[in-house]
């Protein structure tokens, strides 16, 4: 087994393992089917060229925007329909995030990986619901919780009958408008045999520093990603958009195609994912 009682399998030949880092990437918000297919095709081809397993990622509902007037996305029904088409057309597993129990039930029919947002990583009933879906669950570590707490969350999921869990490091709050990445968190979460990924784009955020919108430092993302790869993460999470400045969300941190190419091309060079230390 790879992590706990999970052999690492996702779908369509993609497997988390101690050998290869899996890329989970796509546009932050699924603004349109065309955008999803464009970004997904680009990333799929790039990953195939670099022999990197790939999972498509995008959100159908950004349910926790800072400002109420910020766009949320296509919504559950339309968004999941698009994700289903993307999966069918590109033949890659898909990942999306869930905010409610209703989201879990609907998304589990379409997606291979369900993602718990960082703000909801403590939500007991949502965790149970996600576990019961029997899908692979990626849980973003809250910016305000410890890695030890996330280990408890993974253990709880296992008790709920689902050990297919990925713990995702995405930065820790350090006062306002600032996140820092403590790479010892990756060590702490891995040491109990957990599968761990790193969200390089969200870790570069500067929350709320653009008049109610999230800013960020795109230029530091390659550094963050490479350090995470050197820390032996099992997965790397990136948000990619053909025109980041026009993106509906996270415009300051989504990567352009060229920027994404630079990072993805270096995955094999900088990291190999050994599952971690002794249990």
């Amino acid at each position: 087994m790879f992590a706990g009682n999970w052999n690492g399998d996702v779908a369509l030949g993609v497997t988390f393992s101690s050998k290869d880092v899996v890329l989970m990437a796509g546009p932050c918000t699924l603004e349109s089917l065309e955008l999803g297919l464009k970004v997904g095709s680009f990333l799929k081809d790039l990953c195939a060229k670099n022999q990197i397993p790939y999972i498509f990622k995008s959100s159908f509902d950004k349910a926790n925007r800072t400002k109420d007037s910020s766009p949320r996305g296509p919504g559950r029904t339309q968004g999941l329909e698009w994700l289903k088409q993307i999966r069918q057309e590109l033949q890659v597993p898909v990942l999306t995030d869930i905010h409610t129990i209703e989201d879990v039930e609907a998304a589990a029919d379409v997606c291979d990986v369900l993602q718990m947002p960082a703000f909801l990583c403590e939500h007991r009933e949502l965790l149970i619901s996600a576990a019961l879906s029997k899908k692979v669950i990626q849980i973003k570590k809250g910016q305000f919780v410890s890695p030890q707490y996330m280990v408890e969350v993974a253990q709880y999921m296992e008790k709920c009958g689902n050990s297919k869990v990925i713990l995702c490091e995405r930065g820790t709050c350090f006062g306002y408008r600032s996140l820092i990445v403590d790479y010892t968190n990756i060590y702490e979460m891995k040491r109990y045999g957990n599968c761990v990924s790193f969200d390089a784009t969200h870790s570069a955020q500067q929350p709320g520093n653009q008049n109610g919108q999230t800013g960020g430092q795109r230029e530091i993302i390659p550094t963050l990603a490479r350090a995470a790869l050197a820390s032996h993460v099992n997965g790397l999470f990136l948000e990619v958009h053909p025109e980041p400045s026009k993106a509906w969300s996270d415009a300051a941190t989504q990567l352009s195609f060229i920027e994404a190419q630079d990072i993805i091309s270096s995955i094999r060079q900088y990291g190999s994912s050994s599952v971690g230390l002794s249990k």
Binding site: E122, H123, R124, E152, Y156, C160
Partner: peptide, 14 residues
């Protein structure tokens, strides 16, 4: 509702 997970020993009741 005991909404917040405190530890892995918490109830699994929905």
């Amino acid at each position: 509702g005991q909404w917040k997970l405190v530890s892995s020993k918490d109830t699994q009741e929905m």
